[in-house]
C-alpha cells in the first residue's frame, strides 16, 4: 500500500479546522438562531471547495500550457553562465577552501541573482557518503508539486464534506440542502474510494505486469498489427477469408486456427506464408488477452472517477446556485 498519499500537513490543518467548527457547533445551543455559526461555516466550506477546485484548475491550466510559471522561462545561455559560476564555487568547496554552509549558500544565491536565474533554479547543499559537501542546483517548482496539491485536494475536500454537514446543522432543512448534502456525500465517498484504490491497486498492477507492462503490451500490439497487415497482403484471397473469419470470431480460437492450419494450401511457399499469418494471429490474440487483463486492473483503479467527476461538476453548480440564492434573498 502506498502510504505516501496519507502523509500530509494539509491533513493536520484540515482536521484542526473541522475540529474547531465541531466544537463551535456543539457549543451552540440553538443552531436555528446561530447566524454567525451558519455564516462562518458556510463561507469556510466555500473556501474549502475553492481550494479543492484549485487542484483541478492548476492541473488543466498546466496541461494547456498557460500556467504562469511558463512565463518564467530563461534562455539556456543564462542558465549555463550561472552553472559555470557555480562550478567555480564547487571547486572551492571540494578543495576545502570554502566550508561554511551559510557562506556557500550566500555566495551561490548571489550568483544566481546576478545571472537572473534565481526564479528558475535554487540551491541545495547536501552531504555525500564521505561527508563532503555537494552543492546542487535544482528547479524551484514555483507553485509546488502536484502531489502536494493532491494532498490539499484530498484533505480540504474531506473537511469541506464535514463542514457542509455542520453548516446544515446535521440535517438538511430544504430540498437545496438535501441536494447539497447528498452530492457532497457522493463526491466525498467516491473520493475516499479513489484514494483507497490509488493506494492499493498500483502494487497489484505492478505484480500483474511482471512479464509484460501495459505500455509494452500496447507497443507490441501496434507492431503485431503492422506485421499482421503485411502478412495478410502476402496470402491468397481464400486463406485471407478463412483467417479473417477465425480472427473475428473469438470462440474456439485455438481449435479453429488449428483446423485452418491443416486446411492451408498445398503449395509449400503459400503454406508457409499462411502459417506465418496464423502464428502472428495467435500471438496477437495472446498479447491482446494479456493487455485486456492489465487494462481491466487499470480501469478498476480509475473506476471511481466515473462517479466522482460528474458528481463534482453537479455539486459545483448546486453550490453556485445556493450561494447566489442566499446572497440574493
Amino acid at each position: 500500500m502506498n502510504t505516501e498519499l496519507f502523509k500530509s500537513r494539509h491533513a493536520f490543518v484540515a482536521g484542526l479546522l473541522l475540529l474547531g467548527f465541531a466544537v463551535w457547533f456543539f457549543s451552540t445551543g440553538d443552531w436555528e438562531s446561530a447566524r454567525s455559526f451558519r455564516f462562518g461555516s458556510g463561507w469556510t466550506a466555500l473556501v474549502l471547495f475553492a481550494m479543492v477546485l484549485a487542484y483541478v484548475l492548476r492541473k488543466n491550466v498546466h496541461k494547456a500550457g498557460i500556467s504562469p510559471e511558463f512565463k518564467m522561462r530563461v534562455p539556456l545561455a543564462k542558465l549555463e553562465k550561472a552553472e559555470s559560476r557555480l562550478s567555480g564555487l564547487r571547486v572551492l568547496i571540494s578543495s576545502g577552501k570554502l566550508t561554511d554552509p551559510a557562506e556557500i549558500m550566500e555566495r551561490g544565491k548571489a550568483m544566481l541573482k546576478q545571472e537572473g536565474v534565481q526564479r528558475v533554479i535554487k540551491l541545495r547543499l547536501l552531504e555525500n557518503a564521505e561527508g563532503q559537501q555537494i552543492l546542487r542546483a535544482v528547479p524551484t517548482d514555483p507553485l509546488g508539486r502536484m502531489a502536494r496539491w493532491m494532498h490539499a485536494h484530498l484533505y480540504y475536500g474531506l473537511a469541506a464534506g464535514g463542514m457542509v454537514w455542520l453548516h446544515a446543522g446535521g440535517m438538511p432543512q430544504s430540498s437545496m440542502g438535501y441536494a447539497l448534502a447528498g452530492l457532497t456525500l457522493v463526491v466525498v465517498l467516491s473520493g475516499i474510494g479513489g484514494i483507497f484504490l490509488w493506494a492499493v491497486m498500483p502494487r497489484i498492477l505492478t505484480k500483474a505486469e511482471r512479464d509484460l507492462s501495459v505500455e509494452k503490451a500496447h507497443a507490441l500490439l501496434d507492431s503485431l498489427d503492422r506485421k499482421v497487415a503485411l502478412a495478410y497482403e502476402s496470402v491468397d484471397a481464400s486463406t485471407r477469408a478463412v483467417c479473417e473469419d477465425v480472427d473475428k470470431s473469438g470462440e474456439n480460437f485455438t481449435q479453429r486456427i488449428e483446423a485452418a492450419r491443416k486446411a492451408a494450401p498445398e503449395d509449400a511457399e503459400a503454406r508457409r506464408q499462411a502459417e506465418d499469418l496464423m502464428a502472428l494471429l495467435g500471438q496477437r490474440r495472446q498479447v491482446r488477452g494479456e493487455w485486456k487483463a492489465l487494462m481491466r486492473i487499470k480501469q478498476r483503479m480509475h473506476v471511481w472517477r466515473v462517479v466522482h467527476l460528474p458528481a463534482a461538476v453537479l455539486l459545483s453548480v448546486v453550490i453556485l446556485i445556493h450561494v447566489v440564492s442566499v446572497l440574493w434573498y
Partner: peptide
C-alpha cells in the same frame, strides 16, 4: 529553461 521538470512537477 523552465523552473520545473514538468513530469516530476
Amino acid at each position: 529553461g523552465l523552473p520545473f521538470e514538468a513530469c516530476v512537477y
